[in-house]
């Protein structure tokens, strides 16, 4: 009798959870469904529809959007298909730009995160707060301000002229460098914060152990510190790379026509009468596929390495 009571209570308790498992998870599934899956499915569906003359779509299934992305069939669409390099080129340039921005963020973000994580606990929150302060200002305003800072008669050039480092203003606006600067400035905190979290958990006795075992500072960094904080570095890189790849503000405002990126390409398809919704949706789906592919390869390697 005395022994049976707790058993019974345990069984009925797990019964409660078992019976209600689905119902209790409902809000989560609803959220994931409505805000994550549904938009992707909609985007996928739209990419297979026929374009309406002034934006919008008609419900006729076609592969025209993907065909337009990958193949060139001449002006009237009656020539034999050739590979269309325009959009692949834009994608390639975007990946390259986003990769470079990620690398810049890593080179500056890692020492920054390291510096903050090695301060006294109370000073850390102050430093973290300082890092996030620029982000209280709207991204658009920050990007436009960047343009003012680096234009021919802006403060940067004025200063360089004043110091005598240059004799005539550098034209920085509408260059790859300007886009890089914009992306770097936009996404730096997304690199700093995950690395900070990893470094803060790092056990500095590991560095002492490495030094004790005859490793100098660089060897310790390469063989011990970087591998141990790698999850933070990877998380930061993903958080910078993915939005950089789809960014359109920085390329539009700082890069001009020469440095057209995926984000701007997609944005244009959904704007005004020149738009082509199915094509924009197809470009988005291709971008999504690339990003998911990269993440999957990474996740696969991670689980292998973790064994």
């Amino acid at each position: 009798m005395a022994g049976a009571a707790p058993d019974g209570a345990g069984a009925s308790r797990s019964e409660i959870y078992r019976g209600n498992g689905f119902r209790l998870m409902l809000p989560v599934w609803a959220f994931i469904g409505i805000f994550l899956l549904l938009p992707v499915v909609l985007m996928g569906v739209y990419s297979f529809l026929t374009k309406e003359f002034r934006g919008g779509v008609t419900w006729d299934f076609t592969l025209a959007a993907y065909d337009q992305f990958f193949f060139d069939r001449g002006l009237f669409g009656d020539e034999p298909p050739k590979i269309e390099w325009t959009y692949i080129g834009i994608f390639w340039r975007s990946i390259w730009q986003a990769g470079l921005a990620t690398l810049m963020c890593l080179l500056i973000g890692f020492p920054t995160a390291w510096f903050i994580a090695t301060r006294a606990p109370r000073a850390r929150s102050a430093w973290l707060f300082l890092v996030t302060i620029p982000y209280w200002v709207n991204l658009l305003i920050r990007t436009v301000s960047m343009k003012f800072l680096i234009r021919d008669n802006g403060p940067l050039n004025e200063f360089l002229l004043w110091t005598g480092a240059i004799s005539e203003p550098l034209s920085l606006v509408n260059t790859n460098f300007a886009v890089q600067l914009g992306l770097f400035y936009s996404y730096l905190p997304f690199m700093v914060l995950p690395i900070y979290a990893a470094v803060e958990r790092y056990d500095f006795a590991l560095s002492e152990a490495a030094a004790d075992l005859y490793a100098g500072a660089w060897t310790t960094l390469r063989l011990v510190i970087l591998p141990v904080v790698k999850p933070g570095i990877v998380a930061g890189s993903i958080l910078v790379f993915v939005p950089s790849l789809g960014a359109f503000l920085a390329p539009d405002l700082l890069g001009g026509a020469k440095t057209f990126m995926i984000g701007s390409l997609i944005e244009e398809q959904f704007k005004g009468s020149a738009g082509n919704w199915p094509f924009g949706a197809a470009a988005s789906m291709i971008l999504l596929t690339i990003v998911m592919g990269v993440l999957l390869i990474y996740a696969r390697n991670q689980t292998k390495g973790g064994r």
Binding site: D203, A205, L206, E208, A209, A210, A211, D212, L213, Y214, A215, G216, V224, P227, V228, K230
Partner: peptide, 20 residues
């Protein structure tokens, strides 16, 4: 001499084994 040039080795209190 810095620690990595001293011919002594340490067993740390919480071992400090390289987890990776």
């Amino acid at each position: 001499l810095p620690p990595h040039r001293r011919p002594v080795n340490t067993v740390f209190q919480h071992y400090a084994l390289f987890p990776h």
